[in-house]
Each structure stands twice: as C-alpha cells, then as structure tokens.
Write a protein that binds this DNA or RNA. Structure first.
Lengths: 193, 193
DNA sequence: AACCATTGCCAACATCTGTTGGCAAACACT
DNA sequence: AGTGTTTGCCAACAGATGTTGGCAATGGTT
C-alpha cells in the first residue's frame, strides 16, 4: 500500500516506526485493545499521536501490525511420535515466555473481533497444518488441533492473563511434565467411543 | 450497603433492576467490559441510563452485580474417584451452556483487573476447595486445581470466545469423552518425576 | 387530603477517544 | 542555491463515555 513498500529502501523514520510498534505491543499486552490508547502508546514511544496515524493508518492498522505472530512450529515429521506432546508444550512455553505479542493477541481476542479472527487463523491454520503432517485420520486432525489449542491457550490464559497463582508459580519444566501427556493423547490417542 | 438490604422487602423497582442485570450480562458477554456501554445496556433494558447509576452506583458496581457467579460444584466426596474427571467436565459444560455469566466474566477478565481478580477467586477458592475434599497430598491440591482450571478455561475460551471451529462444532458429549481423562489425570494422577 | 419516599426521565457536565489538517523544520536531490 | 519530499508537532474537531442534578409522576402511609 505505501509507495515505498517496493524494495529495501531504509527510511529515516524506521526507528520511530519500530518504537511505535514496541510501545504498541507493550500496551496492547498490558491493557487490551480498547484500554490501550493511541495517546498512551505515542507517549511511550515519545512521539506525537498523529505520527501513529500517519504510519499505521488507524488503531486497527496499528494493532494488525503489532499483533503479527507466527507460532514457528517445528517440523513435526522429524520428531519421535511418542514425544510429540512434550516437544509441543516446550515449544509453546519457550515461544511466548518473554514475547508479549501473544499476550497482546490473547487479551485483545476477548473483545476485538479482528483479533479473534487472527487467533482463529493462527491456531486453525498453522496448528492444524502441523498436526496434519504426521498422517492420521484426516477427519480427525481438525479436532485434534482444536483440543491441543484448548489446552495450550488455557495454559496461556491462566498463566499470563488471569494469573492463577498455582499456574504462575509452577516452573515451565513442571508444566511440561504435567501437560505433555495431555497433548500427546490429543494428538495421537485413539478417539474415545 | 443499600438501606433496604436488611430484609425481604419487595420493591416496585425490582423488575427494572432485573431487566438491567439481564441486559448487562448480555452486553458484557457479547462485547466485553469496555465495549459494553451503560447507554447500550439501558437501551436494552428500556430505561434511562441514569437508572443504572442509581441502582448500581457505577459501571464497576453493575459489573460486580452482573458477574456474580457460582460454579456450584457438586460434592466430590460422593463421586467414584475414577469418574471425577468425567463428572467435572460434564458439570462445567452443563453449567455454562446457556448461562452467559461466565462468558461475560471470561471476556472481561482479559482487560478488567477486577474481573480477573474475581475469576482468580472463583477458580482458586471454589475449585481448590473442591479438589481438597478428597484427601491427597495437600501440597499438590493447588497445582491440581490450577491444571484443571487451565484445561477447563481453555475449553471455554476456545469454544465461546475465540470460537475455534472444531471446538464449536464438537458436541458436548464428545468433548467430555476427550477431556475427561485429562482432568482425571490432573486430579488423581501421580505427579511426574 | 397531606406528606414523603420512590421511580423515572431529561439535560447537561467534564473528560477521553480516534482522527484530521496545517505548518515548520530537516533532509535529499539536482 | 533551490525545490520537493519526508518527519514531526500543534491544535482542533466530532463523537462517545461515565456520571450528576433537578424535576415531574407515581405510590404508599397517616
């Protein structure tokens, strides 16, 4: 859309753009979509609110840019089938410990339809595709992926959003030990009667 | 707090109060805390916005009244230990299918600190208490309850908030079959090494 | 009938929100 | 030097939001 999106032409305002994006991620993660105001984000980035509009068009556009998120799922075909669950939990925990993008997306998905749509895309597309790689009943892959998403998002929700004390205090490794068997069964277990 | 909270004195405005509460629950569930405006709630209840303020003091007060929620957990001591997981999932699904209070609480908990606090109270207190009834290692009950909460809230989040297609399309009974073993292990399984 | 609390509505307030237009300085290019 | 583009800020608008005070109508009580 922007006239300079054609090539690697570094702009003088790239630093400002990045500062806005960083501040936006922080605010969206901490406050959610509606409480995170453009004025507050601009103040954090130490620029004028009108700059945000010029560079990202609107608040929705800013959020779309700030909540870009890739699960970066590993290639599951090269994982021993018996360790799929463990690999997945560990990957998820490592992926978003310290990266507030997912927290921003998670918070916003509760109230912002666009964010929910993006969340659906991430987990329905990326995760379902990954689950589909190790061939099982194709009719079940979507359900398996959905179940994995339910446990994984529940983990994120209770640990980073609601901050349930037992879920916050438990170390990542202990969480992996508890939750890996769950994902393992959702992924490879035989469907219940 | 209100001067008439002392006894069963039916007021003429009870119908209005109830209408406000019903509209508030709907709006909070559908839009979240900040998007649900007092004006919209009042319009749904077909009264003036100032009535909401008079009867509930503030928007926070209205939400506190509308998001009153009791898990109504059954007495787990009278449940065969091997069926704890199944009983629990079934209870949760039945409890909030058709009752939008929890959805309201869930949506609001992402952005409203008070709602998150209440959510913490519900799941940390009520659920932990229920888990503690069938005696196991007291040092583990909090963690077991937290894990159960993570799966149960993840189920609610993916099914009612994000609306992941596979989680929406699956029937409650099928969900019970898949998820019951998870809760069973979180509740009674031996802790991983 | 006289009195008073309750119920309801209208109008307004102060504030905050996303968003816009214009203008000065800095820069790039010829 | 001169010209056009980019970067940044200021001021303001238009709308929405929670909240308040006053005033009429209603109902119950004596």
């Amino acid at each position: 859309m922007t006239p300079s999106a054609q090539s690697t032409q570094p702009r003088r305002s790239d630093a400002t753009r990045a500062a806005i994006l960083r501040a936006a991620r922080e605010r969206f993660a901490a406050d959610g979509y509606e409480r995170a105001t453009i004025r507050a984000i601009a103040a954090d980035a130490q620029i004028d609110p009108s700059m945000v509009m010029r560079y990202y068009g609107s608040k929705e556009g800013l959020f779309a840019a700030a909540a870009e998120f890739d699960l970066r799922l590993p290639d599951l075909t090269s994982v021993p089938p018996a360790q799929l669950g463990e690999v997945l939990v560990r990957h998820f925990l490592a992926r978003w410990e310290g990266d507030e993008t997912l927290v921003a997306l998670l918070r916003a998905a509760s109230t912002n339809p666009g964010a929910a749509e993006r969340m659906r895309g991430i987990f329905a597309d990326q995760l379902t595709a990954a689950v589909a790689t190790f061939g099982s009943d194709p009719a079940l892959t979507a359900r398996r992926a959905g179940l994995v998403a339910s446990q994984v998002l529940g983990l994120a929700f209770t640990r980073y959003i609601v901050r349930l004390p037992p879920m916050v205090d438990t170390t990542p490794e202990e969480l992996v030990s508890w939750i890996a068997p769950t994902l393992q069964r959702y992924l490879t277990g035989t469907p219940p009667s």
